[in-house]
Every structure is written in C-alpha cells, then in structure tokens.
C-alpha cells in the first residue's frame, strides 16, 4: 500500500484506538473512519478522479486499508468486551473466604441409623412395612398373644386414649380401646392381615411408653421390627439373618449369641447378645441388643396363616439404643433436644 493518504488513515486509526475504552466511544471512533462521512469513505469517493487503468490498483489498496482498519477495530472491540465482561465479574475473588449461606442441611442421627438398618435388611430381601402410631388394644396386644391381664397392658405402662375417642383412618377389630403403640410389633399383625406369606418385612417406627424422661428413658422412642414368614423357617435361619445384620452393622469381628427369654408373641423367644472388640467401654462384653423369637403359632392363627404350613421369626430393636451404641452417646435426650452442637456431628449423609 503505497498511497500515503491511505497509510495515514491506517496510522490514524491505529493511534486513535488505544484511547477507545468503551463501546459508544468505539462506535463513534469507528464512524470517523468507516462511517458514511468517515475518512476511508471519503477517500473511496475519490475513485472518480482516478484514471481508469489505475482504478483496480486503487480499489485493491482501498480494500486492503479498509480490511486493516476493520480488523484493528474488531480487535479493539474484542478487547473492550473482555474488559467489560471482567468488570461485570467484579473484583478478583479470595477463594479462602467462607461460603455465603451458612446452610448445611443434614440428617438426624436416628434417621441415619434407621436408613443403615433398612439398607442392610434390603440386601437380604426385606422391605419396609408401616402402620400407624395410634393403635388399638387388639393389634398391639391381643393379636400378639398378650393376655388381658398382662403387665404390659397396664395403664401404668401404656398410654391409652379415653373410651369415647374415635379415629377415622385407623381400623379397629371390634370396639377395643385406642392407644399409642408400645412396640412396632403391631405392624406384624397389620401386615400379615393384608399380605400373605412368604413375607420379609422390616418396620421402623415410633413407639410410646408411659415413662418419665431421663438419660435412658423417653416417652417416645423408635424401634425396628422385622418379620420373616416362609416354609420351613427354623431357629437357625433366625440366627443366620441376625448374624448377617449384626456383622454388617458392627463389623466382621462381632460375636453373637441367642439367650433364652420371653415374649408373649414368640416361642421360643430369645435376647440377642453381641460382643464387639472396639466399642469403647463396652468392648468385649456381652451386650443385649435386641429381642427375637419364632412367631408363636397362636399369633399366626389369629391372622389366618396356617401354622402347620408356615413358620417364621420376628425381631425388634431400638433405634436409639443402636445409635447410642454405635456412636457412644450417653443420653437419649440428646436426640430430642436437637442442639446444633449435637446434630452437626452426625448430620452428613454417609
């Protein structure tokens, strides 16, 4: 490009650009070169005065200059946009500053334990059944072979509703009293009345006792019931299932034993003891962990399952108790006080 005018225009464009710092200014400056009255446009109008044979050269030079100026402006625009984009981002960040929201959602430790228990049993085919917390005497006691005058049915230990109490969505057997269930074993009955064997269910839920609250007692607490009904289920199957569960929960080193005991709805009945090498103060001692037994034939009869064809077992354990054992928690009231300093220790999902 030998034309000195064009060279000057290009040079002017080049020297004007560093001062251009925003888009309007850029538009304005661009117009002084490429606009209808811009210097390049003006120069192009001079083609009329150019000799015909020189016109191709003139045109070529003009286009070349225009190309240069346009790309100069384009580059500048990119640069301006980049600056503006960065400006919109604000100051550079200090990544060590804390997050803005202090929110950190989390699980309650009882939910965490419940989920752990259920996921273990799910591996061996148990799924969740539920029933209501408000129950009736028949489902909570009679159907579980607990006689009328059994101590567990005392007003001393069980919270009853007054005789006139009426419940729309809880089915009664006859006109027996409503109460707050004392164990999740009532779910066994509701499940067996609705579904027929083979059955493997696990039933977590809230239970109630007429207890004053202290470090080891709570007016409400949580249990998980399990029920397994099939052909030819034996005491050894019961042991096998519970051994699997306790090994998954407390580790491979756990030792277990069944110890004869008594529940009205199982025969024979056992307490399950376990011994774990690494459980703080309770290491290497037999600790009672749960109750279990073979479902009493009378119970099966009451829910129309033939005890000669079907046998099975049931078990129940306290979710608070398991949580306290697993984490070394010494006071059951922590679960219901919901203090952040307690909850935050266990609130992660894993």
């Amino acid at each position: 490009m030998e034309n000195p005018d064009l060279q000057k225009i290009v040079a002017d464009a080049e020297s004007s650009l560093p001062d251009v710092s925003n888009k309007p200014q850029w538009e304005q400056t661009k117009a002084t070169f490429l606009g209808p009255n811009g210097s390049l446009t003006q120069f192009a109008k001079g083609i009329g005065a150019v000799a015909k044979e020189d016109r191709p050269a003139f045109g070529k030079a003009l286009n070349q200059a225009k190309g240069i100026v346009e790309s100069l402006f384009q580059n500048r625009l990119t640069a301006i946009e980049e600056i503006e984009d960065l400006k919109a981002l604000g100051d550079k960040i200090d990544p060590t500053l804390p997050s803005v929201s202090s929110l950190q959602g989390g699980l309650h430790p009882l939910t965490k334990t419940r989920r752990k228990i259920i996921s273990i049993f799910r591996k061996i085919g148990f799924t969740v059944a539920e029933a209501t917390e408000v129950e009736t005497e028949w489902f909570c006691f009679d159907a579980l072979n607990t006689p009328d005058d059994h101590p567990a049915r005392d007003e001393q230990d069980t919270l009853f509703f007054p005789p006139h109490s009426k419940w729309a969505n809880i089915q009664r057997k006859k006109d027996e009293s409503y109460l707050l269930r004392t164990h999740t074993s009532s779910v066994q009955i509701r499940t067996m009345l609705r579904e027929k064997p083979p059955l493997r269910v696990i039933a977590p839920g809230r239970c109630f006792r007429r207890d004053t609250v202290d470090a080891t007692h709570s007016a409400n607490f949580h249990q998980t019931e399990g029920l397994f009904i099939d052909h030819k289920v034996t005491v050894r199957d019961l042991k096998g299932v519970l051994d699997f569960f306790l090994r998954e929960l407390f580790g491979e080193k756990v030792e277990t034993r069944l110890r004869p005991s008594f529940f009205p709805f199982t025969e024979p009945s056992f307490e399950v003891d376990l011994k774990v090498p690494d459980l703080g103060k309770l290491s290497n001692k037999w600790i009672e962990i749960m109750g279990c037994g073979m479902v009493d034939p009378k119970v099966l009869g009451l829910v129309d399952i033939d005890p000669d064809e079907w046998t099975g077992f049931a078990f129940g354990l306290g979710i608070e108790r398991v949580t306290m054992l697993l984490h070394g928690i010494d006071d059951i009231r922590h679960f219901y006080q919901n203090d952040q300093r307690f909850l935050s220790q266990f609130s992660s999902q894993v």
Partner: peptide, 22 residues
Amino acid sequence: TSDLQGSKFLSPSLIRDNEPAY
C-alpha cells in the same frame, strides 16, 4: 443356644415394594 450356628439363608429374587409412605 450359645453355640447355635446360623443357616445360610436364601435371598428371594423378587422383593416386595416398600410402603409408599415410607
């Protein structure tokens, strides 16, 4: 009962659904 050995129980290939509410 302290020496009772657990059986190797079978897992079913089909399991029921959880209670929908759960």
